[in-house]
Write a protein that binds this DNA or RNA. Structure first.
Lengths: 184, 184
DNA sequence: GGTCCGATGTTCCAAATAGGAATAGTACGC
DNA sequence: GCGTACTATTCCTATTTGGAACATCGGACC
């Protein structure tokens, strides 16, 4: 939890800023929802703002107040050289924990002895549909990235994600089949 | 976040208690580390105890103070009928969110433009090793479950997990190959 | 022109979670 | 008899979540 002062979320936001140029907290949250969400928890609105405050005080991002006479004034943030340095340092040094999953479907399957077969099947079916939706979303994102070398790594992650969703869908089918077989 | 008074973690603990019989907070945490951890966040020690307190006050678990003259006295908890009912209700009614992953490896791959190729490869290699370790752990657990119908669902989850780890390992290999190809 | 709606933009608050440190008693090997 | 590891619980702090509340702007619509 402790690595200097900046949390993992803080570093993730620095990472997004390294793509984004100059954005408001609101836009940063939207960017997180379009990217981070697929492999990390997209931080809450409130956390985006409080984290930006922390990063600002640490000199890792720079805020620019928009002219008050323009449209909707907003504070826009961008990465500073110190911020980029900190991000590189973190990427090089921080230890990479094993992924943590909060898998509600697996949790409920685990407690299957307390769930009606109908409900279980419905749940798995619904998950399959959600997976299709996600796959489509990700496919569209992947397409949008093209083969622009600037998005090389994002593309790799998107492809990994698509693979994962496909595999999950298959795994669910296997479970459904196992459940439909009468237990010995 | 709000579903009566009991959090998701609370319900997960109720679920574990439905397997465990009568256990102390410490044992419950250990059980969570051996089971829940593979598909959910294993709650912190402190949270296990505070959650047990909440569940107790709600009448969903029952505490029994061990005789003070015995060995290490411990408060042991077991599920009450009301607790089982609540668990069934929750399983039947609560909505099942799409899984959330905190995937440090994917996060760092996403930010690959700021990571040295060596570090990236080392990280992916290390993840592969961790996956092998986890697969072995899970295989052992799966074996321990045998084909006891009492553990039917646990076995399904364990098999799903093994599948997932295998797939992750393959996906990492694909990424490693893509990275080793010179970019066009 | 006025009015409603949805998107933008930010702050605030309460609760849940995470991650350990601190504290103790007990068992067990040596 | 002593050190070490395991059992057991409590406490503290920081992080994270999930929204409500507030305000402003741009268009759509009548």
């Amino acid at each position: 939890m402790r690595q200097g002062q900046i949390s993992t979320t803080g570093h993730a936001l620095l990472g997004l800023l390294s793509f984004a140029g100059e954005v408001s907290g609101y836009e940063l949250k939207q960017l997180a929802d379009r990217t981070l969400r697929f492999f990390w928890v997209s931080p809450a609105m409130s956390q985006v703002y409080s984290e930006l405050g922390t990063l600002d005080r640490a000199g890792l991002v720079e805020a620019r107040e928009e002219a008050a006479n323009g449209p909707r004034p907003a504070r826009r943030y961008r990465l500073t050289p110190a911020g980029e340095e900190e991000l590189r340092r973190w990427l090089a040094q921080s230890d990479v924990g094993f992924p943590v999953i909060k898998h509600g479907v697996a949790l409920r399957l685990f407690l299957g002895h307390m769930v009606s077969p109908d409900r279980m099947e419905e749940m798995l079916q619904r998950y399959t549909e959600q997976l299709e939706g996600r796959t489509a979303e990700l496919a569209q994102i992947r397409e949008g990235l093209g083969d622009d070398p600037a998005y090389r790594y994002a593309a790799l992650v998107a492809e990994w994600g698509q693979r994962y969703y496909r595999e999950e869908a298959e795994a669910v089918q296997v479970v459904l089949e196992a459940l439909s077989r009468p237990r010995t």
